[in-house]
Design a protein around this nucleic acid. Structure first.
Lengths: 156, 156
DNA sequence: ATAGGGCTTCCCATCATGGGAAGGTCAAGG
DNA sequence: CCTTGACCTTCCCATGATGGGAAGCCCTAT
């Protein structure tokens, strides 16, 4: 099977298959005499494994561990579960951070009348920083590390 | 004010201040005869604006728009609100995607006994793909584009 | 004068992914 | 046999925001 067919069969782009090979996530594929990579159904299975793990947000580094465990017949399911739980925890953290941003933004957007006038509490907040506007509504400004050294997180 | 002081006063690292200048988010700072950048309190205010917007997850591109609106006295608050709502929508989407991943993972982790034995439903799922295990529990496998061309998203 | 800390620019790395160029290969049809 | 088009190869570049670090200049206090 050429790389294009393996790509279609696995849902992993040819570009990424080469990349995974280059970083050692998968072993170097066999080659034809003319240099074309060759794949077997087993290789495709591995690629599908990788794609599914990526779909669950696992970074390549973790997928390496997962693949190793998969190929280790004497693995302990506890090891797999630990990796999954770590991934869950990471996702949870990032979700919480984004949720905090969203809450703050909603708060601000709600306060902005959004008409032709220039006055805007959103800009005011960005300019002057978090004001204690409203004490009862869940602390007013819990969101997004609004005070302190701000671990800014990747949102793109 | 040197860049170090501006950095401390604004909470933006010197590295990032130079970067923001290089990409045109802020105008080139004044310089001493020896080439040191110089900042005023106004510059620091802009940097703080940027930092707060980053804390809310706005990409630099959007911050450019926000800064332009801020400096436009004839702005319409509707424009600011639109940008904020777009940001909220983007956050919402990413949160939903991650939530779907998390739900799937939790499902799998719950099914994994996590002991010394090698049998592991997590690995089984990654290998064989989404099985219709359980019809009643919210569709069993709604998560993470588990079928179809999978727009894989950045989670790091 | 010298030491130490701050500043400058420039390059590199991240993480996973795509785009594209330049060139070799293969299969089908004229 | 040769051309065409689809496929493959490698290599370089870009993304986005950030940090690390090197080499070298500047400033201030001892």
């Amino acid at each position: 099977m050429n790389i294009g067919e393996a790509s279609k069969a696995s849902g992993v782009s040819a570009k990424m298959i080469r990349y995974y090979e280059s970083v050692g996530l998968i072993p170097a594929a066999g080659r034809t005499t003319s240099g074309y990579r060759l794949y077997t159904m087993t290789d495709v299975q591995v690629l599908r494994f990788i794609r599914r793990a990526r779909d669950l947000g696992f970074p390549v580094e973790k997928i390496e561990e997962l693949l190793a465990l998969w190929q280790d017949r004497s693995r302990q399911s506890a090891d797999v579960k630990r990796i999954a739980l770590e991934q869950i925890a990471g996702l949870e953290t990032r979700i919480r951070e984004m949720q905090a941003m969203m809450d703050t933004l909603r708060h601000l957007a709600d306060a902005c009348c959004g008409d032709h006038r220039p006055d805007c509490p959103i800009l005011a907040d960005l300019l002057e920083g978090p004001q204690q506007v409203d004490a009862h509504s869940e602390g007013g400004r819990s969101a997004a590390n609004r005070s302190g050294p701000a671990t800014i997180l990747q949102t793109h």
